[in-house]
Amino acid sequence: MVSIQNLSFSYRKKPVFNGLNLSFQAGHVYGLLGKNGTGKSSLLRNIAGLLFPQKGTISVNGFTPGDRLPIFLQDVFMVPEEFYLPDIPVPDFIRSYVPFYPRFNSDKFRDYMAVFEIPSDSTLQNMSYGQKKKVLISFALASNAKLLLMDEPTNGLDIMSKSQLRKILAQALDEERCIIISTHQVKDLENLIDRITVIDDGKILFDQNVEDISRKLSFRFAIDEADLADALYSESSLAGNVIVTPSREEEETRLDLELLYKAIVTNSSKITKLFHP
């Protein structure tokens, strides 16, 4: 669905990507992780056609995003971190924006709004940032766009809304749709993401399926000193030392995205070796 070949992009004199290659397939939820300023949002905006690559190509559903053709824009919806919605009643917003998205499902929009507990006849002007974000997310999902780009979607959402978002996103995923989520709040979307891509310094540091990660890595408390010595990453807590370690045979532990991310950032060479022996 999304193919990025040899992408180079920079802001004036600050290089962001240099020769980046990456692809995203339909039917998956991708988690784009990385430190601040590593280019996660820039990558999403390049994919959406809001920024243009200096070198290399991006193809989304066979289209070049930078052309911003209406047929391309109908199938790509972006929920940016900083977003704008006009100060009009929700029904007016729906009336004027929906006709641009031919596959928009009004029933689903109402369902999502109901899950988020937002009255469908309210005015956007009177809503908080979090409520507006929920309207935008509901609209994005109901648009049935094949590619959904979400930049920090859980920012500004309360605890209940975060779990509602997980529920809605899980419902919205189908074989034809690809969802790419850029986030710092890895815990918020832990059980939803099925492929993790970590960007660091404009490069792909790690790009693996959750299934493979669960098979090859173990997230648990250290039993003894030897365990701690073998760990790829360790962190002390009140209950003991939590470690990320290569899995033993047929061992299955629950994936901890935050620990995984820390392990990748602090010990990327060993992790890479483990996945690419």
Partner: peptide, 11 residues
């Protein structure tokens, strides 16, 4: 924020 909204309208 407004620029993204404007440029991504499918027209």
């Amino acid at each position: 924020a407004k620029g993204i909204n404007f440029l991504l309208v499918p027209a």
